[in-house]
Write a protein that binds this DNA or RNA. Structure first.
Lengths: 253, 253
DNA sequence: ATTTACTTTCATTTGCTTTCATTATACAGC
DNA sequence: GCTGTATAATGAAAGCAAATGAAAGTAAAT
């Protein structure tokens, strides 16, 4: 059995059974726990499952609200810094896109002082945050509501955005590597982002240090498609360098 | 059982049962109180529940509660009755439209028990309420966010809905008269509703008694376009009669 | 000869329990 | 209504066993 097959089998098991244990898996596939742990690590990095002590559970097992709150709290300081640096790029009167990642969400808090802004977003949370900001026009694409990310995913719904000229797009990501570019955990999510990357004159990636070197299941932008990466100082320096070598500006805040 | 699973189960319990006790939880999961307390601490820190002496109680999700409170302020009893009667018309597996009026919003509360429902709505509040209902697929049109009604208004964005066959549409209104039909307070709002009336096989107007005889600035449906009016017993009887004379079913609840 | 897949070893971390001093709650007596 | 006391809940600290990640080693494939 190839490692790939084993990993696929693990994914199947965790989906179908709701949980897997390291010990059980190591027995079933006749490998040691260390190997299983490596597999689980890999799959967790890809966002396919969630690692626990002693095993793993499927992604999305937790309430969406829980995960949103959780994600919002994690790395709060770095996110706030990244968000502040990002919002400094926004100019009055522009149209910008803000995606449904938690890092991009943090950008919203800083757009309050801008005037006559148009914010395009597929995130209900972003839209909600901007409600009651009379200086900001919020535009949303149509689509089906995705429970985990609280966002609309449907490429067909993007047609309504055609007439807007979006100056800058702020994209979060599950992972960022020089080779795979920006990646996300689901193909459907990635499909929308891919289309939106096309529509933004400038693509700005907002990713904290933990995202570097991680690869999700679906990529939505190559590094060359990105105009600017905003990340924090903990980002691995050699990876930052190779992204810079590809001609992309990387800001460490 | 993994710690994550236990915590998830605690969240489920506190949501469903309204309260949990440390002693009961520690017995149920076969761990000591100290462990349960640590779990509750963690969940309380995340804002998922509120800690009390001896246990915990649920916390309503921010806007969720807000909208609930708001909704119950005015004509609560009538609206609830109208909503209950309306939701009785919905059948499992259907696609229905629910608009952004407060009366239509009340219908949402009753769709929880339906299976495999598709709800089309341009209201962020409706979408929000249905989040976390795995049995309901939420579809939204694209558009610009209207601050007052918290809804998306943009006829262009409706294209994404073309492929859905919407069985029933529940429309609130600012006013209803035999002559002017259903009217709303803004032309832009009415324009969307007009298009949506076209798309629904059955148009159901949900209006409390105060709406009868009132006319807003823009009408979005003639009385003949409506298949059913659901209102309360306080509706002026002679006006109800003239609507019935036009061949429209009027239910007084 | 080099890469890939895996195992073994081991110091560290995690999750949990137990113990204990402190604090909150309930309620009986005034 | 108040107050003191009994009872229960709490958080902190210490201890323990299982799980873990990192590193070094082994074997097979290319």
């Amino acid at each position: 059995m190839f490692p790939e097959e084993r990993r696929q089998a693990i994914v199947d098991l965790v989906q179908r059974h709701g949980r897997v244990e390291v010990a059980a898996l190591s027995q079933r596939f006749d490998v040691t726990g260390a190997t299983i742990r490596a597999d689980l690590q890999l799959l967790a990095d890809q966002g396919v499952l969630v690692r626990t002590h002693g095993g793993a559970i499927p992604v999305g097992a937790g309430l969406h609200e829980l995960s949103l709150v959780k994600r919002r709290q994690q790395h709060g300081v770095q996110k706030a810094r990244i968000a502040r640096a990002s919002s400094a790029l926004i100019e009055d009167g522009e149209a910008v896109f803000i995606d449904s990642s938690s890092t991009a969400l943090a950008v919203v808090e800083h757009v309050r002082q801008r005037r006559d802004l148009t914010v395009v977003t597929n995130s209900l949370v972003v839209a909600q945050e901007l409600l009651g900001q009379p200086n900001v026009t919020v535009v949303m694409p149509g689509g089906t509501l995705h429970h985990d990310t609280v966002s609309l995913i449907d490429v067909g719904g993007l047609a309504v955005l055609q007439r807007y000229h979006i100056a800058k797009g702020f994209f979060g990501a599950h992972g960022l590597t020089p080779a795979d570019g920006l990646t996300d955990v689901s193909e459907s999510e990635a499909r929308v982002k891919r289309a939106l990357v096309e529509m933004c004159r400038q693509v700005i990636a907002v990713v904290d240090a933990t995202k570097w070197g991680r690869t999700g299941v679906a990529s939505f932008a190559r590094v060359q498609d990105v105009h600017k990466v905003i990340t924090d100082v903990d980002a691995p320096i050699e990876m930052v360098q190779s992204v810079r070598d590809l001609g992309v500006e990387v800001a460490l805040v």
